[in-house]
Every structure is written in C-alpha cells, then in structure tokens.
C-alpha cells in the first residue's frame, strides 16, 4: 500500500470516512469493558475508599490532554515544514478534542480533590500547568478564528502550538520537580505500577478507549474541516450531490 497517496485530501477523505465506524465501535466496546472492570472488578482502595474510582476517567483524560497536544504540535510542525494543507487541517481538528479532555481532567480532578484534600482547587504545579494547557488549547483555537487569511491562520496557530509543547514535560514531571499536593505517578515507565493489577487494567482499557474515541472524533472533524475549507464534493464517498447538481443543470 502506498501511504503517501493518503496525504492528498481527496484520498484521505473517503479513507477517514471508512475508518470512523471501526474506531467508534472499538471505543464503545472498550468503554463498556473498562467501566465494568472499574466498578465491579477493581477492589476498593485501602486509603481512599471508593473515591479513587474517579481515576478511571481522570487519568485517561489527563493523558489524552497531553498526548493530543503533542500530536497536534507534530501535525502543526509537519504542516510548517512541508507546507501541507492536510497537516494543518489535522492540527485544527485535534485542538477541540484536546481542550475537552483538558477540561475534563481539571473537572474530574476537582471532584477527586474535594474529598481527598478538602479543596476543589489548589495552586500546585500539576494543577496550574494543566490549567495553562487549557489556555494553550484556547489560544491555538482563538488565534485560528481571529485571522481571516487561512494560510496565516494555519501558520500562526502552528507556531503557537509548537512553542507551547514545552509545557507538556512540565506537566508530566511536575509531581517530581516540585512539592505538589497532587499524588505522584501511579504508573511509571521507570518503576512500573504501584496499583492493583485489576485497577491498572481498568485504567489502561479506559485510556485505550479514550484514545480510539479521540481518533474517531478527530477523523470526523477533519472531514468537516475539509468540506468547509475546500468544498470539493467529489471527495464524498456518496456522490449524491453531484448527481443532483448534474440533474439541475
């Protein structure tokens, strides 16, 4: 298979359309399995009781918020380097979903912080840097909508996204670099996992589910962006519009 073929929007559009149902189906199945494991298989935490179960949405959302930012920045960088429209469109399609997961990470974090620390919000390094990530997503999106010229909008938001990448390692290592109220990493590449196996499994399944959800939603959004920006109906897998147009002629 020649992958470079799909860097052309005309070829990518129908491919994305065919892939969306598969990613959506896998996401739904994994969410059902992950929620079942999280609520019925994973044991009660000996320190935090049942409140820890927020972890099954909190950690996947927080991971996705950082991961999607990096992927968005990579697409923005590729767009800058190769001057590729599709790359900019991918970056544009990722931002809203990344922002949503950042918001959810902060919200579910507040829901966890209140019973555990006694406060919805504290200005510690982890929480503050994650809040800054939300502002960065907002900045990337606002910069795009505030510039009328598409090429300039693409490049400006790409530069903004690329510069902001420095915040991602700051978020990730904030619990090590500073004295934070936020607990340290439960799963680490260096030390392995400190969690019960079923807890870890449920969390990882939910993470993959969120990942698959993100791919499905982002592919759907990039298709919208393509139609909005380039309005080429021949890309459509169902060429009903063309027939109609031809009949009207």
């Amino acid at each position: 298979m020649i992958w470079s073929k799909y860097s052309a929007p005309q070829a990518f559009y129908p491919l994305a359309g065919r892939l969306i149902p598969w990613f959506a189906a896998v996401a739904i199945i994994l969410m059902v399995v992950g929620l079942y494991m999280g609520f019925f298989v994973a044991p009660t935490d000996f320190q935090q009781g049942e409140s820890y179960r927020i972890i099954f949405v909190h950690v996947p959302a927080a991971w996705m918020s950082m991961f999607l930012y990096v992927v968005m920045a990579i697409w923005a960088g590729v767009g800058m380097g190769l001057n590729a429209r599709l790359s900019f469109m991918m970056a544009q399609a990722i931002a809203p979903t990344g922002a949503m997961f950042t918001f959810l990470a902060l919200l579910t974090g507040a829901m966890w912080g209140k019973p555990t620390w006694g406060a919805w919000w504290v200005w510690d390094a982890r929480l503050t840097s994650e809040l800054i990530l939300l502002f960065q997503y907002a900045g990337v999106m606002l910069l795009r909508t505030s510039i009328d010229d598409l090429r300039r909008a693409d490049r400006s938001s790409a530069v903004f996204a690329l510069v902001g990448v420095v915040n991602v390692p700051i978020i990730y290592y904030s619990v090590q670099w500073w004295n934070t109220l936020h607990q340290g990493a439960s799963v680490s590449m260096a030390t392995g996992s400190k969690m019960a196996a079923t807890m870890l499994m449920a969390m990882l399944i939910m993470t993959i589910a969120f990942w698959m959800y993100s791919i499905a939603v982002i592919l759907a959004r990039v298709r919208c962006v393509m139609v909005e920006r380039e309005s080429l109906p021949t890309w459509d897998d169902k060429p009903a519009v063309i027939h109609e147009a031809v009949e009207a002629r």
Partner: peptide
C-alpha cells in the same frame, strides 16, 4: 460509592455528557 457518590458520579456523568455533546 462509599459516601463519595456525588464526586464519582459527577465525574463520570460530566465525561459522558462532554463526549455525547462533542459527537
């Protein structure tokens, strides 16, 4: 949820609502 129902269910409900809304 061992007395944490409000916090746990708000978290899961908010996540579900965001995803449904996005779709």
């Amino acid at each position: 949820m061992g007395g944490y129902g409000l916090y746990v269910w708000t978290s899961f409900l908010a996540t579900a609502l965001c995803m449904v809304w996005e779709v």
